[in-house]
Simulated scan of single mutants.
Amino acid sequence: MIRYSLRCRNDHGFDSWFKGADAFAALQAAGQIACPVCGSTEVRKDLMAPAVRPARKAHGAGLREGDGRPDLTAPASELEEKLAALRRQIEENSEYVGMNFAAEARRMHAGEAPGRAIHGEARPDEARALIEEGLPVTPLPFLPARKVN
Score class of each variant (00 low, 15 high):
residue 49 A to N: 12
residue 23 A to F: 06
residue 39 G to C: 08
residue 126 E to I: 03
residue 34 A to M: 03
residue 93 N to E: 14
residue 125 D to A: 15
residue 45 K to C: 07
residue 74 A to Y: 03
residue 117 A to Y: 10
residue 56 R to W: 07
residue 47 L to K: 12
residue 72 L to V: 13
residue 104 E to C: 01
residue 41 T to I: 14
residue 112 E to I: 00
residue 74 A to W: 08
residue 80 E to G: 10
residue 67 D to R: 11
residue 105 A to C: 10
residue 64 R to K: 15
residue 111 G to T: 05
residue 108 M to V: 03
residue 127 A to I: 00
residue 122 A to L: 07
residue 92 E to Y: 01
residue 90 I to G: 04
residue 95 E to P: 00
residue 72 L to R: 14
residue 123 R to S: 14
residue 76 A to C: 06
residue 113 A to H: 09
residue 31 G to C: 09
residue 114 P to T: 13
residue 40 S to Q: 00
residue 134 G to E: 07
residue 70 P to L: 06
residue 128 R to M: 03
residue 92 E to C: 01
residue 144 P to R: 09
residue 119 H to I: 10
residue 109 H to C: 02
residue 30 A to H: 06
residue 85 A to T: 12
residue 119 H to N: 13
residue 68 G to S: 11
residue 111 G to F: 05
residue 34 A to C: 11
residue 146 R to G: 05
residue 63 L to R: 13
residue 60 G to Q: 02
residue 34 A to R: 15
residue 141 P to H: 06
residue 24 F to V: 01
residue 20 G to N: 15
residue 100 N to L: 13
residue 61 A to W: 08
residue 116 R to F: 04
residue 55 A to H: 12
residue 40 S to C: 11
residue 133 E to R: 03
residue 146 R to S: 12
residue 30 A to N: 06
residue 67 D to V: 12
residue 120 G to Q: 04
residue 124 P to R: 10
residue 99 M to Q: 13
residue 144 P to V: 11
residue 50 P to F: 10
residue 50 P to S: 11
residue 112 E to F: 09
residue 74 A to S: 11
residue 89 Q to D: 14
residue 57 K to Y: 07
residue 81 E to C: 01
residue 105 A to H: 04
residue 60 G to A: 05
residue 96 Y to Q: 06
residue 101 F to N: 04
